[in-house]
Design a protein around this nucleic acid. Structure first.
Length: 604
RNA sequence: GAUCCCGUAGCUCAACUGGAUAGAGCACCCGCCUUCUAAGCGGGUGGUUGCAGGUUCAAGUCCUGCCGGGAUCGCCA
């Protein structure tokens, strides 16, 4: 995968060769950054595993590997500690060579895949008629980070926002409008006529109607122990919504016209949030786009005996003998003749197979959808569309408020995404004024800087949590600018940019890097860790690994910045070396921040 | 009830898939701005990794059982 080996890779090769010469597996030579920086830069634990197989003394094996390692020009010292740890300290020459390599590499040491794959990323989760709130932030920023990471690694990515625009909620909204505004022309039975261009509803209307009517089609309310019949349940409305859904899907013109309004009204808000967050999708498709394939697909599945008729609905049995958990059947067509997201997701797979033929499809959707995707993937496999192996659900944890319950604002509502962004913008702007920064720039530029800081804070706060776990959202902490935050990373980058401006003015040029100070060693080691972090984030689809690396790098730079003055350094060789190291850091830092969707301003 | 996930410092989170003395940030305490942006740097206080067993040279990580929290379990997405 790697074009240029990082230090761990080079050391692993050397140690691996030593293990092989002992008649052992080269993989035992795997080197990693040391847990004990006071003792070593890198460590190898393979001797202890080897000792078990050979029933030899691990220290004996370790000593012989360590002796072999000493021959490498990279290694300053190699010794054995404890039960058989091999500790390696790197030579200044080795570190300097690596630093120069990183400084001149376009990709700052990043690996690239040898064989690019066609990858589809599906961001299912946004719905028509629902405004984006804090809970939608995760799929957006995680998915965006993943698409940037995969592209950077060389894969051919097609991202699809995949709106939820075709299920019962659409029929429910039509029903709601029929009740609230019954004289609209969309409801005239059999009408094929022209319908108004302008939407009869605004996003606010939809945002109000949707929750109001959703409550009426819930048969029960309350949590598990206190679950009880919903007093507001309206079977008539439920029935009407189901019927309207089926009619919409069957192509009733008035309903389709109305539905288009719902979609376009919603999309305005979604696009605004995307632009604000700097998130782009290749495709703005939705569940509805799969609709035209559904009849063909269901016929195919029925004719091959994969779908069967059961309790009024067409289902596919996806249960397996080995299943421990309950595996309900895949719901192809419900008893009204309407389809839900099982069918549209499967039809979408068929569509993608025909048009994109992806080797890998990633679904960045709430962890709670895990069972759904397992059903869809199994169905796809059974049907011979795309193999289950190339379909992955990347679930993520939910966003909770203090106490582990879903986050609520002070007035009990959900925090809308644009409100969060506005709040962060305002806080960032206030912070700038307080620090008396940006007094010499226009108000417009100040706002631009503040927004970049705000977005960095929001994205980093979210992405630095492990993808799969739930996290607790606290507004103040989320948009704080001190410590381990997005703005800290920006600050490091901005300081280097400022240095670069001064260097330019004073005619200072980067020169060969020579590592002397401890702070310089630490910075090179941090820079060298990029490949490993990127590879890990890519393999595991875990953006937090990149966040962790970005922070380590910024921290190492801050230490270097404080310990090694550049512009005031009198020795021109040292000055040029340190400046080159700073510039290498900036290059990598900007690449890394790019992978988590963070843009760096020129000053802040 | 069944299946799966989680429980780490006062708070919010890490820990490279079994490695050494479990790391960060916030908060708190002490230092550092007449030289590169103090949104910063250096240092300190703070832990029986929910509990009890087990596996082995080595367990936050693996196995078992409890306790506590969450998610899911056919016509909502």
């Amino acid at each position: 995968m790697t074009a240029m080996k990082d230090l761990a890779g080079q050391l692993s090769d050397a140690a691996g060769a030593a293990f092989v010469s002992l008649g052992l597996d080269a993989a035992l030579g795997a080197m990693r950054r040391s847990d004990r920086p006071d003792l070593a830069d890198f460590q190898c634990n393979g001797a202890m595993a080897a000792a078990k197989k050979l029933s030899k003394n691990p220290r004996e094996i370790a000593t012989s590997v360590a002796d072999a390692l000493k021959a490498s020009p990279l290694v300053a010292s190699a010794d054995v500690a404890g039960p058989g740890f091999i500790n390696v300290r790197l030579s200044a020459a080795g570190l300097s060579a690596r630093a120069n390599e990183l400084a001149t590499d376009e990709r700052a040491g990043a690996p690239k895949v040898e064989k690019p794959r066609r990858v589809v990323m599906d961001f299912g989760g946004w719905n028509v008629a629902k405004e984006m709130h804090i809970g939608h932030l995760r799929s957006t920023v995680i998915g965006d980070s993943l698409q940037r990471t995969f592209r950077f690694m060389g894969d051919k990515v097609t991202s699809d926002v995949h709106l939820g625009d075709w299920g019962l909620q659409m029929g429910l909204l039509i029903t709601a409008l029929q009740i609230e505004m019954s004289d609209l022309p969309y409801f005239v039975e059999g009408s094929n006529g022209h319908f108004p261009e302008a939407s009869p509803v605004t996003m606010d209307d939809l945002g109000r109607l949707y929750p109001q009517y959703s409550l009426m089609i819930k048969e029960t309310i309350g949590e598990e122990p206190n679950e009880r019949p919903n007093p507001a349940y309206r079977p008539d409305i439920h029935e009407a919504a189901r019927k309207a859904t089926a009619e919409l899907q069957a192509g009733r013109p008035g309903y389709l016209a109305l539905w288009r309004h719902f979609c376009s009204v919603t999309r305005v808000g979604l696009e605004r949030e995307c632009a604000s967050l700097g998130v782009k999708f290749d495709l703005w498709k939705g569940e509805s786009d799969a609709n035209e394939l559904v009849p063909e697909m269901t016929e195919d599945l029925k004719s091959r005996g994969l779908a069967e008729f059961d309790a009024g609905a067409w289902i596919i049995r996806v249960k397996r003998e080995t299943d421990k958990k309950n595996m309900p059947p895949f719901m192809l067509v419900n008893r009204d003749g309407a389809v839900g997201y099982h069918a549209t997701d499967l039809a979408t797979i068929l569509d993608r197979k025909r048009n994109l033929d992806p080797e890998l499809s990633l679904y960045i959707v709430d962890e709670r959808q895990a069972l759904h995707f397992e059903q869809v993937f199994r169905a796809s496999d059974l049907a011979g569309y795309l193999p289950e192996k190339g379909l992955e659900h990347l679930g993520f944890g939910t966003v909770n408020g203090p106490g582990g319950k879903p986050y609520k604002t002070r007035d009990g509502g959900v925090l809308k995404l644009y409100e969060l962004i506005n709040e962060a913008d305002a806080t960032a702007l206030a912070r700038m004024k307080e620090a008396e920064l940006g007094a010499d720039v226009s108000a417009e530029e100040q706002a631009d800087i503040a927004h970049k800081v705000a977005v960095a804070a929001i994205k980093f706060s979210d992405l630095s949590n492990v993808r799969t776990t739930n996290y607790i959202f606290d507004l103040d902490r989320f948009i704080s600018f001190e410590g381990k935050t997005g703005p800290y990373l920006l600050y490091a980058a901005v300081r280097i940019k400022s240095l670069a401006r001064r260097a330019e003015a004073e005619g200072v040029k980067p020169g060969p890097i020579s590592i002397e100070l401890n702070a310089e060693r630490a910075l090179v080691l941090a820079l060298d860790g990029f490949g490993d972090a990127l590879g890990g984030a890519y393999e595991k689809r875990m953006p937090h690994i990149i966040c962790e690396h970005a922070y380590t790098l910024a921290q190492a730079f801050s230490g270097f910045y404080a310990a090694a003055p550049i512009m005031s350094e009198s020795d021109p060789a040292k000055k040029a070396s340190r400046f080159a190291l700073a510039m290498a850091t900036l290059k990598q830092l900007e690449l890394v921040l790019g992978l988590i969707g963070i843009e760096t301003p020129e000053r802040m």
